[in-house]
Design a protein around this nucleic acid. Structure first.
Length: 275
DNA sequence: ATTGAGACCTGTCGGC
DNA sequence: TGCCGACAGGTCTCAA
């Protein structure tokens, strides 16, 4: 499920039950997810108090009183379930946190692409996956200039560049397509076209950065309102439907890039769209 | 150094 | 109804 907005929603949902709470016990119900759990995982969590739950890209970071940080990634199918009391574990409940409050938080992940790790709090940036992350898209550090700089000289398609977490942290397959549609840029162009030869932003870089911010913040707002389980995407999974851009009569197409589906409008996101 | 393909896993959905 | 392949919102590794 989760790209940045979904992970942020999970974070907000967990905060009231986790932050300020003490972990009484942790059940680890299999030896690994995508990677093995670190040595002594359950023991090192037991008895600690959670002082903060942050998000970086698609990672959740729980700060513990033991001066370690619990690093969590939901992969493709990870989710948390909160219960008032202990009950029967469900299929694919791999980790169960029992809080001193009595609340039980189960991590469920059928595909097991998720990750849980425990690292010294001062050393988080030394984790390769976290240290290499690009800027937070909703922060002021991320703008057209930063995006252009990261894309300069790159021949990979623009869509693929947006999925590269080193370019910007937290975009995934859905919002990459949606942001490109909003910015009216072709997903197939070389990423380099949004920058000048010396890496300065072209107008398209500013448009794209703004579109990324808009698409993500709208998604976060929608998650907060919680209701709409329907189909809130601009182009993702909308092959054959009308392009949502004003004044565009195009139809959404689907192509495969780097083994993944890309949805875009063949009219307003034409390849030749310069600048 | 970049880039693309394949691998990792299970569930679901559409077509026959 | 049942089987089978295609596909799924994410990374990581490996070989060009």
């Amino acid at each position: 499920m989760p790209e940045l907005p979904e992970v942020e929603a999970v974070r907000r949902e967990l905060v009231p039950f986790l932050v300020g709470g003490r972990i009484d016990r942790v059940q680890v119900r299999r030896p690994d997810l995508r990677r093995p759990f670190p040595a002594g995982f359950a023991r090192r969590l037991r008895g600690t108090t959670v002082s903060d739950l942050a998000r970086r890209g698609k990672y959740l970071l729980a700060q513990l009183s033991s001066r370690e940080t619990l690093v969590m990634h939901l992969g493709m199918s990870g989710s948390f379930r909160i219960a008032a009391a202990r009950g029967e574990p469900e299929a694919h409940d791999h980790v169960v946190f029992e809080m001193a409050s009595g609340v039980v938080i189960a991590f469920n992940d059928p595909r097991r692409f998720g990750v849980m790790d425990l690292v010294p709090s001062g050393a988080i940036e030394r984790l390769p996956a976290l240290g290499a992350l690009g800027p937070e898209p909703l922060s002021s550090a991320f703008d057209g200039a930063a995006l252009a700089h990261a894309c300069a000289g790159r021949k990979t398609p623009l869509k693929a560049a947006l999925l590269d977490q080193r370019v910007v942290a937290g975009l995934g397959n859905i919002y990459a397509s949606d942001a490109l549609n909003l910015a009216r840029l072709s997903p197939r162009q070389h990423a380099a076209i949004i920058a000048t030869p010396v890496g300065l932003p072209r107008p398209s870089a500013h448009r794209l950065a703004a579109a990324i911010k808009k698409v993500l913040s709208r998604a976060i707002d929608r998650q907060a309102r919680d209701s709409d389980r329907s189909h809130p995407f601009r182009v993702y999974d909308r092959e054959g439907q009308r392009c949502p851009n004003r004044g565009c009569a195009g139809v959404i197409r689907r192509i495969t890039q780097a083994g993944r589906s890309t949805f875009y409008c063949s009219v307003c996101q034409r390849r030749a769209t310069r600048l």
